[in-house]
């Protein structure tokens, strides 16, 4: 964790330095976010922890388009008794979205692309393409999107078979209480290809419910809170809201998380979240869980 805190500090310094050289005008807007997460596993005979940190830059052109570039690293540690080597992963995210405005609302075409590499001799590379089409009405009370992603898991080792995961994510969102509340429902329909990496190629599905509340009045400078609940079966999922790739080869069965977002100054946010996820191992009957703490700081100029 200390290592990740030092990386996180470095990322914040980079974030602050990045602001000094680039001036925003009235048409271009710059955002930067640094984040760190620590996850610990309970009741697992194999997994010990997962630490990650990353930095995301984005450039918006007015309200019309956004280009996002992210880099991240994560360390997956296994219990010494498991005799599995720890894995270090590095990844990049490149995303672009363009908005089209109509009298009925705003349509968005978006494409997120990820490339992840790790040192394991099991999986060497993951390439993901995640196109999304989205709509939100002008009063911001109704939102719908349809996401499709294809994840290609490839190994240099010829003995290890390729694995392809396709995911379809229909989403509905509703603005409530004069848009101080947001309720979002997202379905995950995941189909793995037949591969020796998985004991079966059964489709998996899950539903995620997200509730966001923005505060009308100032309470400890909290801008909003977010509650996330997930139920069902989710495997190798791609979360387009947080740009997270869940590449652990185990099934997520339940998840709950709470995030608090503080607004510091004019355009800086600090987000702290914590959550818990239950897993079912794919290769054994083991059921285990994880608990995580996540921290991010972001600013716009």
């Amino acid at each position: 964790m200390i290592r990740y805190l030092s990386q996180f500090t470095l990322l914040i310094i980079l974030l602050l330095l990045s602001q000094s050289g680039i001036a925003s005008d009235d048409t271009w807007y710059f955002k930067a976010k640094a984040y760190a997460q620590q996850t610990n596993y309970q009741d697992s005979t194999i997994r010990e922890s997962l630490d990650s940190a990353g930095l995301v830059f984005s450039i918006d052109y007015l309200d019309k388009s956004e280009l996002k570039l992210g880099i991240f690293q994560q360390d997956i540690k296994f219990l010494p008794t498991s005799s599995i080597t720890d894995v270090e992963e590095t990844g990049v995210l490149l995303a672009y979205q363009h908005h089209f405005f109509s009298d009925a609302g705003r349509f968005t075409l978006r494409l997120d692309a990820y490339h992840i590499e790790n040192e394991s001799n099991f999986i060497d590379m993951i390439d993901i393409a995640n196109p999304i089409i989205a709509y939100i009405n002008n009063t911001k009370t109704f939102y719908a999107d349809l996401g499709y992603s294809v994840s290609l898991y490839r190994a240099d080792n010829p003995i290890v078979e390729d694995l392809d995961i396709t995911q379809i994510t229909p989403t509905l969102g509703f603005g409530l209480n004069d848009n101080f509340d947001w309720l979002q429902l997202r379905g995950y329909f995941i189909s793995p290809s037949l591969s020796s990496r998985l004991p079966d190629d059964e489709d998996k599905s899950a539903v995620e419910i997200k509730w966001i509340h923005w505060f009308n009045t100032n309470i400890l400078s909290i801008d909003k809170i977010v509650i996330n609940l997930l139920g069902g079966e989710r495997l190798f999922a791609v979360d387009s809201d947080t740009n997270t790739v869940y590449n652990l080869a185990d099934i997520q069965t339940k998840s709950a998380a709470l995030s608090i977002d503080w607004k510091l100054g004019k355009s800086t946010h600090l987000v702290v979240s914590g959550g818990s996820t239950d897993y079912e191992s794919l290769l054994s009957d083991e059921i285990y869980s994880s608990k995580y703490v996540y921290l991010n700081i972001s600013t716009q100029w």
């Binding site: 009235d26 048409t27 807007y29 918006d60 007015l62 309200d63 405005f101 002008n138 911001k140």
Partner: peptide, 14 residues
């Protein structure tokens, strides 16, 4: 403003 394109509207007001 009707389309909630805040940045573009702000740009013209500026």
């Amino acid at each position: 403003l009707a389309q909630k394109r805040w940045r573009e509207a702000a740009n013209y007001a500026t």
